[in-house]
Simulated scan of single mutants.
Amino acid sequence: MTKIKSLADLRKMKEEVQSKIKLRENSDNSGQLVQIKVGMATCGIASGAKDTMKFFIEELEQEAIDAVVTQTGCMGFCYAEPTVEVILPNKEPVIFGHVGKEKVHEIVDAYIKRGELVDGIIPVNFKTIDD
């Protein structure tokens, strides 16, 4: 942890924390924002989902992309953990498997910024009860 030596250091730390909180709690208008849900069940956590979530928050902040980053429970794809669901505004959700630091960068750069599909998509072959 960094030592705080001045009021400027404290203000800088406050701004960093507030921007990270904004990414996680920006749910008021989540339908118009990129939504990222990281699978944080026991299997996801054991496979590195906490780091994956941290990587997403850092990458989105660095790229100045407004998004909602949250955690969710088991998605049922334990073989592909860490798993991440990405929902672009007005698009169907896409689930990615085996998401580490490099995959986070690829998802943000190619899929979120340019709308290009990337390797690692888990096909969803079921319908919800509402369909």
Score class of each variant (00 low, 15 high):
residue 21 I to W: 09
residue 23 L to F: 03
residue 23 L to S: 03
residue 24 R to F: 00
residue 24 R to L: 04
residue 25 E to D: 10
residue 25 E to T: 14
residue 25 E to H: 10
residue 25 E to K: 12
residue 25 E to I: 06
residue 25 E to M: 11
residue 26 N to P: 01
residue 27 S to R: 10
residue 27 S to N: 13
residue 27 S to K: 12
residue 28 D to V: 03
residue 28 D to M: 07
residue 28 D to F: 04
residue 29 N to S: 04
residue 29 N to K: 02
residue 29 N to P: 00
residue 30 S to H: 05
residue 30 S to Y: 03
residue 31 G to E: 03
residue 31 G to W: 01
residue 32 Q to T: 07
residue 32 Q to N: 15
residue 34 V to S: 01
residue 34 V to Q: 04
residue 35 Q to V: 07
residue 35 Q to D: 02
residue 35 Q to K: 14
residue 36 I to P: 03
residue 36 I to G: 06
residue 37 K to S: 13
residue 38 V to G: 06
residue 38 V to M: 07
residue 38 V to C: 08
residue 39 G to N: 03
residue 39 G to T: 05
residue 40 M to Y: 00
residue 41 A to V: 03
residue 41 A to F: 02
residue 43 C to K: 12
residue 43 C to V: 03
residue 43 C to G: 06
residue 44 G to K: 08
residue 44 G to Y: 06
residue 44 G to W: 10
residue 44 G to D: 12
residue 45 I to M: 11
residue 45 I to P: 02
residue 45 I to W: 05
residue 45 I to Y: 04
residue 45 I to V: 15
residue 46 A to V: 03
residue 46 A to Y: 04
residue 47 S to C: 08
residue 47 S to W: 09
residue 47 S to Q: 10
residue 48 G to K: 06
residue 48 G to V: 02
residue 48 G to F: 02
residue 51 D to W: 00
residue 51 D to Q: 13
residue 51 D to I: 07
residue 52 T to N: 08
residue 53 M to C: 11
residue 53 M to R: 14
residue 53 M to I: 05
residue 53 M to V: 04
residue 54 K to P: 00
residue 54 K to G: 00
residue 56 F to C: 07
residue 56 F to Q: 10
residue 56 F to S: 08
residue 56 F to V: 09
residue 56 F to M: 09
residue 56 F to A: 09
residue 56 F to G: 07
residue 57 I to S: 14
residue 58 E to W: 01
residue 58 E to I: 03
residue 58 E to Y: 02
residue 59 E to T: 14
residue 60 L to C: 07
residue 60 L to D: 11
residue 60 L to Y: 09
residue 60 L to S: 09
residue 61 E to D: 15
residue 61 E to N: 15
residue 62 Q to Y: 07
residue 62 Q to T: 13
residue 62 Q to F: 07
residue 62 Q to V: 03
residue 63 E to A: 13
residue 63 E to I: 02
residue 63 E to K: 15
residue 64 A to V: 12
residue 64 A to Y: 09
residue 64 A to P: 00
residue 65 I to K: 13
residue 65 I to S: 10
residue 66 D to V: 00
residue 66 D to I: 05
residue 66 D to S: 14
residue 66 D to W: 01
residue 66 D to M: 09
residue 67 A to L: 06
residue 67 A to T: 07
